[in-house]
Design a protein around this nucleic acid. Sequence first.
RNA 1: GGAGAGAUGGCUGAGUGGCCGAAAGCGAUCGCCUGCUAAGCGAUUGUACGCCGAUAAAAGGUGUACCGCGGGUUCGAAUCCCGCUCUCUCCGCCA
Length: 425
Amino acid sequence: MLDIKFLRQNLDQVRRKLAERGQTIDLEQFSALDARRRNLLQEVETLRNERNTVSKEIGDRKKRKADAADLIARMGEVSARIKNLDAILEETESALEAIVMTIPNVPHDSVVRGTSSEDNPIVRTWGDLPRLAFPPRPHWELGESLGILDFTRGSKIAGARFTLYRGAGALLERAIINFMLDLHTGEHGYMEILPPFLANRESMTGTGQLPKFAEDLFKIEGLDYYLIPTAEVPVTNIHREEILNERDLPIRYVAYSPCFRAEAGSYGKDTRGLIRQHQFNKVEMVKFTTPETSYEELENLTANAEEVLRRLEIPFRTVSLCTADLGFSSAKTYDVEAWMPGQDAYREISSCSNFEDFQARRAAIRFRREATGKVEFVHTLNGSGLAAGRTTVAVLENYQRSDGSILIPKALRPYMGGREKIAPA
RNA sequence: GGAGAGAUGGCUGAGUGGCCGAAAGCGAUCGCCUGCUAAGCGAUUGUACGCCGAUAAAAGGUGUACCGCGGGUUCGAAUCCCGCUCUCUCCGCCA
């Protein structure tokens, strides 16, 4: 969420910035509620002050055995008024919060203004597209004919958008996950985390999934637990309501987790194959930084994600999301898109974002500045490093051969017992 | 699942209705002292929100709230009552 004081003082600027995202927000309503809240607060605090002072006087009188009945009667009324005002104040505050919690982050100045993903500038392209002497097949065909991906049985067990991996397919995805974790912990300086795969309402609110995007989540019936849509949720919430030491920053975590997404509203989109699933595996990088370094950290976070594809020798390009394409909590996002020959397209395989203090404010993640002793909000960042399911897709499609077999990328062979290819049984 | 105990500041730990935002100790920071280190002495040591502050911010001042969370009793609650959450111990079950 945005800072209420900042909002109050920069209404026009915020309105303009949000318009660039294609959002219109009822900032008049915000102003009215904010003013009302402050008036009520003052009134109620004055009454509390009176009650505190007079209650002391009552105590003194009683000690002296003097009569205090008049004061007690008066304070009875004051307390009743406080109770009344408190209820109104609470209503006002939750109405105000309801607005503020649904206002998206303000895009960073370097983010290009646009109206759709068509306007996302390409910032980097890497690798030569493979020139195949045969028409490339999509991964679902390859996976089924090799007997390593079973979409039919995945549907039988759970439903649409669930897939069963078998044999070398299961091994390949596990190898990809292990390779990525080893790379980020061993060479990029991240600490590995294995988090809970369910999270509660507070955690979901802290990172911004709630209250606005409840329909995208799977919820455990009757309990306040949600299946995580990304490891970003549990890992960012590690430090919820904490004050960190400046010298411990930046903190860099990397976590494997399955991710669960309801994919409401995406009917008919990417219905075949592994691209869009209700459950998929992902390795996620999360950072907590000081405000001064967060954009530098975003650049190398993105580079860390790209490095996976470089090592796997899979062509990719990186785009910077324009204002219209930016996620709710993000101030700036790079998407890394891997080349997928079976689809003749680049497809998103990582999304790296700087949330600045947007999540930190919601989740109360702060740090104490050594120079001044003051507490400030940290900046949080995260990025996929990478989506494992889509990485499996990229490997299958880029490394396919005319006989339908798959060459294993060199970087993955140590993770697959030295195996060099996946061939039809 | 059954039985019991507990939750207070960075930590340990007092506090059972007003003098408690909270003793004491530890730790930390600053200063003094000291050949260095240790010891000693002194001071400081939470967060949030509102208001005041010469304009924005800060310094500073002031008020309110916070003793796991939510409600209740009372003129007044860390303290009494109810509900919840979490932690610990024992039993059962289980990977």
